[in-house]
Computed example of a mutant assay.
Amino acid sequence: MMKFKYIKLLWVFLYFSSSQHLLANESNLVLKNQQGELFELNKIVGKKPVYLKFWATWCKPCMEQMPHFQQAYEQYGDTIDTIAINIDLNDDPTAVAAVKKEFNLTMPIMSDHTAKVAQHYQFIGTPFHVLLDKTGKVIFQGHEADKALDNTVRLLSHDGVVAKPRLLDEGNKQAATALVIPEFGLKAILYTATWCDWYLADTRPKMATNCAAAQKQINLLTNQGIDTEARVSQLWTDQAAVDEYIEKFKVIHPVYIDHGNDLFIDNKISSVPTLVIYKNGHMVNRISDFTSPVNLQSK
């Protein structure tokens, strides 16, 4: 139950602030549409209000909010540019298309295939709503489909600006621990999530089983004397979640949160778990299927 309480806390952890000024008119903020074509956000930002919703097909509250999202698009789509952004983590186009059909979604649906758009908007968990005014300034961030979101959307639809931003707290931002790759020998890095073995158990049982198997196998590699560590996604995660994960799996190697999502982006991690193997300072293998034992001694 503590895990679900933690997620709920993330949804409600909002506060009023007028000191943040995120702008989105950067050339590297690129999404991919369902036809595989690239779309630059700066084509629409700064012209009229923009509503971005980050979601995943395996995210239960995302699915619960889809009717609300479609209704908002139908009501305000003419005055507010709206995009449904799949975060492209443990997801695929077939699952996205199924959600589109199930909820009769008619807004543009795109994927954050580089994860850089989510990073820019300080994404920490799905569902995640981001509203920009007509100047390109971010004036709302939140997780719930509530009155605060509805009121902000309504105000934006009238004149394109909102006097008082409502943004997530940035006060607890942390820097990620630097990753050190040795010049000689083997190094194994497991990219995973503290929640993937239990949260995906109902919606993606094979993925959940694979997550648990990965951690158990990395423990075995550590016992063999191989230099191992885990980098966990910042999604839905804090140090308390990491500590619980370590205790649950009796982890015997270092575990670090990838604050800022830089390593996940740099290594193009689009699914968890993924094991990245280095030898003598060079990446030599990536493993994402842990149904069979991992043997690195011959690498």
Score class of each variant (00 low, 15 high):
G136Y: 06
G46I: 02
K164A: 11
L41F: 11
D91C: 08
I252M: 12
E37Q: 13
T94W: 12
D91P: 05
W58L: 04
Q215E: 15
S292T: 11
V153Y: 08
A212D: 03
L23C: 11
S233C: 06
D266A: 14
Y245P: 06
F184H: 15
Y76V: 00
H253L: 06
V12M: 12
Y191V: 07
W55L: 12
P108W: 09
E74Q: 14
I139Q: 04
T94V: 14
K8Q: 09
Y51P: 07
Q239P: 03
T203V: 13
D92N: 15
I226C: 13
S292L: 14
D150S: 11
A56S: 11
T194G: 08
E144F: 06
Q70P: 06
G260W: 04
I246E: 08
T177E: 15
T94Y: 12
D202E: 14
W58P: 02
I265L: 07
A240T: 04
Q122T: 02
A188V: 02
R154K: 13
I109C: 13
F103G: 07
G125S: 07
Q34A: 04
Q20V: 01
Y76W: 04
E40M: 11
I87N: 06
A188H: 10
M110W: 04
R204S: 03
D112E: 10
T82C: 15
L14N: 10
Q234F: 01
A213P: 02
A213D: 07
A95K: 14
F4R: 15
T82W: 10
N261E: 09
K134I: 00
D289P: 02
V117I: 06
E64C: 11
K47H: 12
A201I: 00
N104M: 12
N86T: 05
K53V: 05
M2E: 10
S292Y: 03
I218Y: 04
V153S: 08
A98I: 09
L220P: 01
N151H: 13
H253R: 11
G160T: 05
A201C: 03
K299R: 08
D289R: 12
D197C: 01
M63W: 06
I83T: 04
I277A: 12
P93F: 04
Y15Q: 12
A72N: 10
T237P: 07
R286K: 15
D197Q: 03
L9S: 14
I109S: 13
A163T: 02
V30F: 05
Y6V: 00
C59T: 01
A95N: 13
T192C: 09
L179R: 13
L89V: 07
P127Q: 11
K100S: 12
K250L: 09
